[in-house]
Design a protein around this nucleic acid. Structure first.
Lengths: 222, 222
DNA sequence: GCACTATGTTACTTACCGGTAACACACATC
DNA sequence: GATGTGTGTTACCGGTAAGTAACATAGTGC
């Protein structure tokens, strides 16, 4: 934060220095949003003020408020955008193995581990946000809750397609692993517990499939 | 927060109303600390100001600063206290089955689920704190990192005692489940994914023990 | 050249927050 | 009764935050 508010240059100076990047071509609103995305993810929602965002984007607070009605609305929009990006990433990970839920899950978790272990990762932006947002009214909370429910739904669906004995149980367990990896990533480096997520997923799937086979086998035997 | 700062009564008035509880007997410092524990856990570290804590404890900011050198130090002490309480809880859960690591783990996770599903739970205070604390220097970060490392160490140790094929892998997977439960608890009620944690633990243990048996069996066969 | 749009600039308000100074009082102990 | 300790009260400081008003400027299309 100190590093951020240290920039006490005027908006035009900031624009000139930030102009090195091609994003100088972007409209103010887009530059602000892009900057907010980075700062929010890196430092958290509450730790970053609108003035810091504006200056870092090479503009000023007034222009900020011409583009966004309030900080809370910016946060909500940021979260919506993170959702979008997340599902795009998810679908891309899963698409190559359409029809093979096991490989889809394995691919998903493998890419999840790779991404989340990378330098600069701070876990899941949506998951982190829920800790910072006040319990009740914030427009961002709905986004997060909807997002996590959707995640749960999708993982359970995979488990179902897999033919797991207790699909909902498997799906929820996978969600625990995934969310646990995100959270531990905040205290551990890439070699934290998350490194075993893929193996744990495979073990859980095997365990459930074994149950399913036993069940059908014993049914046949009857 | 609004609800908190709504109390605009004087310290003595607050003391009178709070005096109903037996904690009125407590020294100011203890009352402040107890109040801080509750507010920090419920609303987060950054969301609660020292003035709110002081008033809620039936005193005022000046007395706060007579007891604590700074808010950051209070936070650090709060986190240290949470650690202590956590390991007491952990040891109590595990003690009855000394020598039987499997039952210890099962008991631990069963109590963990029960506790974390209770009304008012907001997951792990230490885990939540890491999101709110600035990346670098905060005195609380060390506490958290040490705590989570200890947690990892203990779970791996259980896995070892269990005779798991790959004990570190199992321990880390258990940690993912546990942390995932804590995190999901912030978006889901008691019937969220955390409800399957115990089953997942049992499955993972079984999976690892099966590997271990196969390994020893094939060794014997040779 | 005119008008419109997007943007930058300066200056301000209101509110909060962490932290401090100075003083007053009440009680307990010697 | 003096002294010390713990506490409450009032008032303040400096900093930062969100949010706004009024005005200036630069480019774009007509």
């Amino acid at each position: 934060m100190n590093a951020i508010s240290a920039l006490k240059m005027s908006a035009s100076e900031a624009a000139a220095s930030a102009a090195a990047a091609p994003r100088a071509k972007l409209r103010v609103r887009d530059r602000i949003f892009e900057t907010a995305r980075q700062l929010f993810y890196r430092h958290g929602l509450r730790a970053v003020g609108v003035e810091a965002i504006a200056y870092e984007a090479g503009t000023n607070k007034v222009s900020f408020y011409r583009s966004f009605p309030s900080k809370d609305e910016l946060i909500a929009e940021y979260l919506r955008d993170q959702c979008l990006e997340y599902w795009q990433w998810w679908d891309a990970a899963v698409a190559p193995y359409e029809g093979d839920p096991r490989r889809q899950l394995e691919a998903l978790f493998d890419r999840y581990m790779k991404l989340t272990c990378m330098d600069g990762s701070r876990g899941c932006s949506l998951g982190n946000a829920v800790i910072e947002l006040p319990e009740g009214a914030h427009p961002g909370r709905e986004v997060i809750e909807q997002h996590k429910s959707e995640m749960r739904r999708r993982l359970r669906k995979f488990a179902h397609e897999l033919g797991a004995a207790d699909a909902d149980e498997l799906g929820d367990a996978l969600m625990l692993l995934m969310e646990g990896g995100y959270l531990t990533r905040l205290t551990f480096d890439g070699d934290g517990p998350i490194a075993v997520a893929g193996k744990a997923v495979r073990r859980l799937i095997d365990s459930h499939l074994r149950d399913a086979h036993c069940a059908t086998a014993s049914k046949k035997r009857r």
